[in-house]
């Protein structure tokens, strides 16, 4: 029970333990050398906190932290700040996702302080999908920052205790900084260097997009190890169960940044129970990435299949179940 409750259950300003940026459960697990699991939460289209807790429950059993997406795919949902505030106070480890698409530097820096005050300890800095793919394509794309300048800005706030303007922050936010990388889209040979740039800007952990193409990911990781990046940043490989061949095809052509090789789709198509096969593929990929040197964990994105997350993680054997606390 206690295991699930973060030290900072009620919002109050605390200093992280020595040698840590935030002391979040995720940071502690990674620094202790445990194979970490994070999972993406499907944000509700509702103002009911109960819906948030319900969405988080199936993930919490196996996840060190739950990702609250920031209007992913440019679709409007409950804000990541709201979700993180609720979940953090209920004792969950959360990852506050910030996309550069919807807010400028003034709003983002203010929100970072607000989130940290609410007890949020992990942040994922993202560029964000274009507005055109979402439910409100007429919106103004902001992109005042990009993911790299966002990382550097939050690191400056945390380590130097100043806003980007140089104005002092009396109590700097204590955050564990993350970024995304997509090893499976062009320009392939630049992706590891781009990762280096994100580390240089302040990234401490990385969550990748979906990995369905293992050879491509292995090549990427080999280069990452050559650059020595696996010793500087914790890399969590993105995985998830595909529902069917049809769903996989749809994702591939409609969701930005998703690369699913044809053999994977063919395997789904040939299966009697496509959903079960999708889960099976996911488990195999988790076991495979677990064996790649430099991979520190997995990030499970099971959109609308959240109920499967615990089962998939436990069956894969990458991690033991934890006892779920209250809620």
């Amino acid at each position: 029970m206690i295991d699930l409750i973060d030290d900072d259950l009620l919002p109050s300003y605390t200093q992280p333990p020595p040698g840590m940026s935030s002391g979040s459960r995720l940071e502690r697990a990674l620094r202790a050398g445990k194979f970490a699991v994070t999972a993406e939460l499907n944000p509700p289209d509702s103002a009911d906190p109960g819906d948030v807790f319900e969405a988080a429950r199936p993930l919490a059993e196996v996840a060190d932290a739950v990702n609250a997406t920031d209007a992913s795919g440019a679709n409007c949902h409950m804000s990541s700040l709201g979700i993180c505030s609720l979940l953090t106070r209920a004792g969950y480890g959360t990852i506050y996702q910030i996309s550069c698409r919807d807010r400028n530097r003034i709003a983002i820096q203010g929100d970072v302080l607000g989130a940290a005050a609410m007890g949020v300890r992990n942040v994922l800095c993202l560029t964000g999908d274009g507005v055109g793919v979402g439910d409100q394509p007429g919106a103004k794309p902001v992109f005042d920052f990009d993911s790299v300048t966002l990382l550097r800005t939050i690191r400056t706030m945390r380590d130097d205790g100043v806003f980007l303007s140089g104005r002092r922050i009396t109590r700097p936010p204590r955050l564990f900084l993350g970024a995304a990388e997509n090893p499976c889209v062009p320009p392939f040979d630049w992706r590891p260097e781009r990762l280096a740039k994100k580390v240089e800007a302040g990234a401490q952990f990385i969550q990748t997009n979906y990995i369905f193409d293992l050879p491509l990911f292995e090549t990427f990781m080999a280069r990452v190890r050559d650059l020595g990046l696996d010793r500087e940043v914790f890399i969590l490989a993105g995985v998830g169960p595909l529902a069917s061949a049809r769903a996989a095809r749809w994702m591939r052509s409609n969701v930005p940044g998703i690369h699913i090789p044809d053999p994977v789709i063919a395997r789904l198509e040939g299966a009697k129970n496509q959903a079960a096969e999708g889960a099976e593929i996911c488990i195999e990929i988790m076991q495979a990435v677990r064996a790649i040197p430099g991979v520190a964990g997995v990030h499970v994105m099971a959109y609308r299949r959240e109920h499967l997350v615990s089962e998939i993680v436990l069956r894969s054997g990458v991690r033991q179940a934890r006892r779920v606390g209250r809620r």
Partner: peptide, 29 residues
């Protein structure tokens, strides 16, 4: 289209085309 100053986003299409304007080569590629 996202005015990125530090490299490509994660949405680059196969063949190195832009996520937002599919007919254009990705500026960062």
């Amino acid at each position: 289209p996202k005015e990125l100053r530090n490299g490509p986003c994660g949405g680059v299409r196969p063949g190195g085309f832009c996520e937002v304007k599919p007919e254009m080569r990705c500026v960062w590629v």
